Simulated assay, not measured.
Amino acid sequence: MTDLPLPIRPEDWLRQLFLSRAAAQGGVIRRKTHDIERIVGRERFLAELDRRGFRAVENAGQTVIFCNCEPVRVVR
């Protein structure tokens, strides 16, 4: 399977992601890891997390982004 052309520019995708209601309220958002890597690239995404002071975790092909500066603790 070949990747289709990007439907959105990387900077627009990041802007939409971090202007979402959940992000603006310091909440949690989830995206497919493959989409992050395909649309914006891992390094650019991680740089944006660092710039904002956010954290993220990956599991089963999903990336969960914590849109705040609070510590993240894995419960179990």
Rank of each mutant, 00 (worst) to 15 (best):
K32D: 11
C69M: 11
S20F: 05
Q16N: 13
V72K: 09
R31A: 04
V57A: 13
P71I: 08
A47C: 04
F66V: 04
T63P: 01
N68I: 05
G26H: 06
F45C: 00
A56R: 02
L19Y: 07
K32T: 06
I36N: 01
V72I: 15
L6A: 13
R44C: 07
I65D: 00
E37V: 09
V72T: 14
A23S: 15
Q62Y: 14
D3I: 06
A60I: 05
D50G: 04
I8P: 02
I39W: 00
G61E: 04
I29Q: 03
L4A: 14
E58R: 15
D3G: 08
V74G: 07
T63N: 01
L17S: 05
R30M: 11
D35V: 11
D3R: 13
A23G: 04
R21A: 12
V64F: 09
V75T: 10
R55Y: 05
G53Y: 06
R38F: 08
F54L: 06
E48I: 01
M1P: 11
G27R: 10
R9Q: 15
L19W: 05
S20I: 03
T2Q: 10
F45M: 00
Q25E: 15
A60G: 06
R55K: 15
V75G: 07
R73W: 12
G53H: 08
R38E: 02
C69T: 15
E43I: 08
R42A: 10
E43N: 14
V28P: 01
R31Y: 06
R51Y: 07
M1H: 11
I8M: 13
T63K: 00
